[in-house]
Design a protein around this nucleic acid. Sequence first.
DNA 1: GCACATCCGTACCGATCGGTACCGAAGGGG
DNA 2: CCCCTTCGGTACCGATCGGTACGGATGTGC
Lengths: 202, 202
Amino acid sequence: MTSSTPVPPGRPRAFDIDEALDRAVLVFWSKGFEGASLDDLTAAMGISRPSLYRAFGSKEDLFHKALERYTEGLASYFARALAAPTSGSVAAAVLHGTVEAATMPGLPAGCLGVLGALATGDESRQVRDALIAWREEGTAHLTRRFQQAVDAGDLPPSSDPHLLALYLRTIANGIAVQAASGSSRAELVQVANLALSSWPKR
Amino acid sequence: MTSSTPVPPGRPRAFDIDEALDRAVLVFWSKGFEGASLDDLTAAMGISRPSLYRAFGSKEDLFHKALERYTEGLASYFARALAAPTSGSVAAAVLHGTVEAATMPGLPAGCLGVLGALATGDESRQVRDALIAWREEGTAHLTRRFQQAVDAGDLPPSSDPHLLALYLRTIANGIAVQAASGSSRAELVQVANLALSSWPKR
DNA sequence: GCACATCCGTACCGATCGGTACCGAAGGGG
DNA sequence: CCCCTTCGGTACCGATCGGTACGGATGTGC
């Protein structure tokens, strides 16, 4: 059964193409497509620039192959979640899998599929941090507001104001990404209402 | 009362600085900080490159001023929402305001605070679209799965499989942004569980 | 009307971007 | 042993990036 490994002519490749692809996944994941320069990629992959182009075609081709590998690897929880027995267990598996994959120690935070065209390069890190602080400030405002609500008896004493604020921020962030992806206002209003249905009753 | 407008020496500015800032907001909003080139900005603002630097300092300074103006303008719904009478009405005002602001006809979709360091320039539009398609595919899978659940009696017949799928995607996107912003796994697990508490019962 | 300060825009800077021409090296097939 | 094919890296390409030097224009204060 040598047909599965028909030794190609010419000088053999001196690096493991899958291992190099794994390195590329990490770079795109943490820096995004635009933020990942060829120097970043070649340095992480341990190969030269022409080697990258021979093996993967172009930066964009490389990104698509990295996304594919990410889908079959670190994001494979999604496919497994679809096979869960009930809709509730599907939903739980999707969200818990997302949380787990987005917060893996030693790996970039977040999801390549969301941040790939979104994350930023080194040069504008200050801007990115400023925006994180901007969103953080909003969360802090909400936390204080919900603490007042607890104090006023408007929310059950068992409520966690910070959790509620973080919950709202998360929904709002998700809505922003969905809107930028083309979701309609009517759809997102329904999503918002569904998210609000789990709000604690007084 | 001329002290409030002490006519400065030198040649007066030939353009309205606030109007130019509004144009800059739209550019950063739709293309992100890195994706917005100086040519994009100067073309939209109708001023030359040195004029931009004299009036705003640098590209980064301009971004911060644009973010400030966005906060006080199109994102002012957030400050108003905090003043709503009950926590539930705060939450509803925040999410509905987010949806409305993120889907304003004639304005960029999404939120400058989320997409500012995230959106992409023209050059990688194909990559961005590919990622949108990637997330869309996931939503489609979930929709089919939940349709099966309805057919099997696992979900109430009144359930909307597409809405449930979109809801999950939105939460997952928000979780990814939060994770990239530094939220811990423990926090996000709580957020996920809260989101799951509104899942329809059989 | 003259000095001064600021604005205007053209035309340029070095750095970096993604991508490639080129040539020596390393393998298999005849 | 030679040819062919592919891989290796150096050194380069044009384009674009953010940022600025500079000289002419336009206003106020003396």
